[in-house]
Design a protein around this nucleic acid. Structure first.
Length: 760
DNA sequence: GAGTTTGAAACT
DNA sequence: CAGTTTCAAACTC
């Protein structure tokens, strides 16, 4: 299976959501250096099929028809206050939009003014401004450009307000090793101009400086906080549909902090200011360009509280029925949601991932990749933590990521004021193949992660997080096993399984102990889902309020095997569920966080985050959450008459009793196992003696000779009776008695080594 | 298995 | 924030 390389993983920390970029790569032969800033057709414009696309050189460009002011407006209006769908304070979006799609009916359409194309050297040429100087950094808001060398440019993406290192997304030259990360030093070896696009944002208005180490030209793009950072990338249909398309959405690594940001100029909303003096060498991600028909989209989450997430998308199979997959990502403070929708393969798909009609939409974007177009509706802000999405039909796949942890990843210094969170990151990608991976953490040695409750604010080490690969396509062949996949399981596509799709997700989103983690819906699994537990009572006013009485809901899962009635904790009630989630979070922001988290000093210090309130159980029964979790009560508890402390004799007694009971259980189990083994062994040894001989009874029993002898004896008795003129009844009696004697002889002879002799 | 107890969650 | 109610699990018989 193709997974994100460790280098790429290492470059996709939590905060990369603020600095994401999309790189769409095309097959070399179909590439064209021509840049295009194309107008957007109407949304109603039918999405052309791959086969309908005219044979034009594939162009990847950033929409540039938006004036700076428009961008500013779009960005500023994306604050969470003007939306009812999002409660987050900031948002970052990276939008892919088809150049052939007309403007969205929605008023807001952030646009960038720098188109880019795929150069012949497999690099994205961003905003090919002829001989633009490095100082020309304010040409358009959000994007700074430099001169365009003949050899193409690198696509540098950085985050606003993030002190991290920018990521340079570079399409490798032909023949370059796919997936190989290109470090800064390598970039230096190949002096190329960069075009820096700032798509990140933060709430504290703190500018960020992006350095460029390739050349003396360093450019920084910054946007003011609470701006929706949107990059629209349009791509014309490629000439040949055989060319694979790759586009990667990634984010810059959260650096440990810049040390020289003084050169950053003031940042005005919607303005892009440049700076120099590179401080931190930018990280370069070389996007592999292979002939494999796979595309990747790596989306990383904000650093907190929601983490991560996707991933990669495979490209469509050339000339195959168009499939569409939508990946609306909703990353509110509750968590994240990834919805993958796949249309029917048999019919040309015009995938529109739409939100609930009741939910205002602030932005709509579309993406055209290769010969396919996509429409994406982006809720710039939502009141709900879960995106309201109307799912047409049942052929969509859901991969829901919700709050996994509140902890910060170790090794990632939380920049001050980076508490912004992703509002929503929906994205629609039209592909026939979907291969998703979550390169949140470096691909370090897999370590068995034991699901452990985490306390609020607990530090989560993402360096060793595992990943769960989940199919984004129906994948009936593996669906039965998906739920049994252990953390870290990697499903490699079988040879020839070109349409297999995968979602590689870190295990932390899978295990339930992380509170709101990962719930996965796949279209084919819909039948497994059960009705829901959001109903709180029979009173109408309480319906659909959502409550944590349901363990499934509390664990961030959909009801599947519980016995709830009138369940709304399912896909069919997504909107209600989202509202319920939000309601719960409104009541208690920690509602979906694990109650039991390990303490600072290790697992031994696990404690209840809230503490118990026991009054009558003495905290020595399972009524007590602390006792149930096998932890002692702490200062957080408000219990009365607590006996669940270290020196408690009652507790020790219970522990001893529990230990003794456990020992007894173990002994009984061992005894049963031994007995079963003995019985099995006995049967194994006796069975062959009974059945051996090919139908012939054992020699100790009736053999052919014995049977013949017996028959002779019986006949002899019958003859004697006849000769004596015995009545028939007496004759039969004599025969039967003789038969009985024969049987007794046979039985008595059984087990003897020699054949029994039957003598009348 | 039914009834009771208990404490968290929800509600006021 | 405190008191009350609701709920489901734990517990008892």
């Amino acid at each position: 299976m193709e997974v994100v390389s460790p280098e790429l993983n290492s470059l996709l920390p939590d905060e990369i959501m603020d600095t994401e970029a999309i790189v769409m790569d095309d097959e070399p032969h179909s590439e064209s250096p021509a840049a295009s800033g194309q107008s957007l057709p109407s949304e109603d414009t039918p999405v052309p099929m791959e086969t309908d696309v005219p044979a034009v050189p594939e162009i990847v460009s950033l929409c540039s028809d938006a004036p700076p002011t428009q961008l500013t407006q779009a960005l500023t209006t994306s604050t969470p206050t003007d939306s009812t769908l999002c409660s987050t304070t900031s948002a970052t979006q990276l939008l892919l939009t088809p150049s052939t799609v007309s403007s969205s009916p929605l008023p807001l359409r952030p646009k960038l003014s720098a188109p880019f194309t795929l150069s012949a050297n497999h690099q994205i040429i961003l905003n090919k401004v002829a001989s633009s100087s490095g100082a020309d950094t304010t040409r358009s808001p959000g994007i700074t450009t430099t001169s365009t060398p003949p050899g193409g440019q690198k696509f540098m993406v950085t985050a606003i307000g993030k002190s991290g290192q920018p990521i340079v997304l570079q399409l490798p030259h032909t023949g370059s090793k796919p997936g190989s990360g290109q470090v800064l030093g390598e970039a230096k070896a190949h002096p190329q101009h960069f075009k820096v696009v700032t798509i990140g944002g933060r709430t504290d208005l703190k500018p960020v400086m992006v350095s460029q180490a390739v050349s003396s030209v360093s450019q920084v793009s910054s946007l003011q906080a609470q701006q929706l950072k949107t990059v629209q990338i349009a791509k014309k249909a490629q000439v040949s549909s055989a060319g694979p398309i790759k586009f990667i959405i990634t984010k810059a690594v959260n650096s440990k902090g810049l040390t020289a940001q003084t050169s950053v100029s003031n940042v005005i909303t919607g303005r892009v200011l440049s700076t120099s003096s590179p401080v931190t060498p930018p990280r370069t991600i070389t996007l592999s360009e292979t002939l494999s028909s796979t595309s990747k989209i790596a989306i990383s989450p904000l650093k907190s509280p929601s983490k991560l997430t996707v991933v990669s998308l495979a490209s469509q199979v050339p000339s195959s029925p168009q499939k569409s997959v939508s990946l609306p990502l909703n990353m509110a403070h509750l968590g994240q949601q990834i919805l993958v929708q796949q249309s029917t393969a048999s019919s040309p798909a015009k995938v529109v991932c739409s939100q609930s009609t009741s939910q205002p939409m602030k932005s709509m974007q579309a993406v055209t990749v290769g010969t396919q177009q996509f429409k994406t509706i982006f809720p710039l802000s939502t009141p709900s933590n879960v995106q309201q999405i109307q799912v047409p039909g049942s052929r969509f796949h859901y991969v829901r990521l919700v709050t996994a942890t509140t902890g910060n990843s170790t090794g990632q210094a939380a920049s001050p004021g980076t508490n912004s969170s992703m509002t929503a990151k929906p994205m629609v990608v039209n592909t026939a193949q979907v291969r998703m991976s979550v390169p949140i953490v470096p691909a370090q040695p897999m370590k068995q992660v034991v699901p452990k409750p985490l306390t609020s604010g607990q530090v989560v080490t993402t360096q060793t997080q595992q990943r769960l690969i989940m199919p984004a396509t129906p994948l009936p062949q593996i669906q039965p096993n998906l739920t049994n996949l252990p953390p870290g399981t990697v499903l490699a596509p079988a040879p020839g399984s070109g349409n297999l799709s995968y979602a590689v997700l870190p295990a932390q989103y899978v295990t339930q102990v992380f509170g709101w983690n990962l719930s996965l819906w796949v279209g084919g699994w819909a039948s497994r889902l059960r009705p829901d537990c959001l109903l709180m009572g029979k009173s109408p006013h309480r319906l659909r309020q959502g409550n944590l009485y349901c363990d499934c809901f509390a664990n961030g899962e959909f009801c599947q095997s519980c016995n709830c009635t009138n369940c709304s904790n399912n896909l069919e009630h997504e909107t209600e569920r989202a509202k319920a989630i939000k309601a719960c979070l409104d009541r208690n922001p920690e509602a979906f966080k694990p109650k039991i988290g390990k303490g600072k000093e290790g697992e031994a210090d696990r404690r209840h985050s809230k503490g118990c309130n026991c009054k009558r159980s003495g905290c020595l029964k399972n009524y007590c959450e602390c006792y149930e979790a096998k932890i002692m009560c702490s200062s957080n508890c408000k219990c009365v008459g607590c006996k669940n402390f270290e020196e408690s004799p009652e507790r020790k007694t219970l522990m001893h009793l529990a230990d003794a009971a456990e020992v007894r259980v173990q002994q009984q189990t061992a005894a049963k196992t031994k007995l079963s083994s003995q019985i099995s062994d006995l049967l194994t040894r006796t069975t062959p003696a009974i059945t051996s001989g090919g139908g012939r009874m054992p020699y100790t029993f009736v053999t052919k000779e014995v049977a013949e002898a017996t028959c002779e004896c019986l006949l002899e008795k019958a003859e004697q009776a006849e000769l004596n003129h015995q009545p028939q009844a007496a004759a039969e009696r004599m025969v039967l008695e003789e038969f009985g004697r024969c049987l007794m002889r046979i039985i008595s002879s059984a087990g003897k080594t020699d054949c029994p002799s039957i003598n009348c």
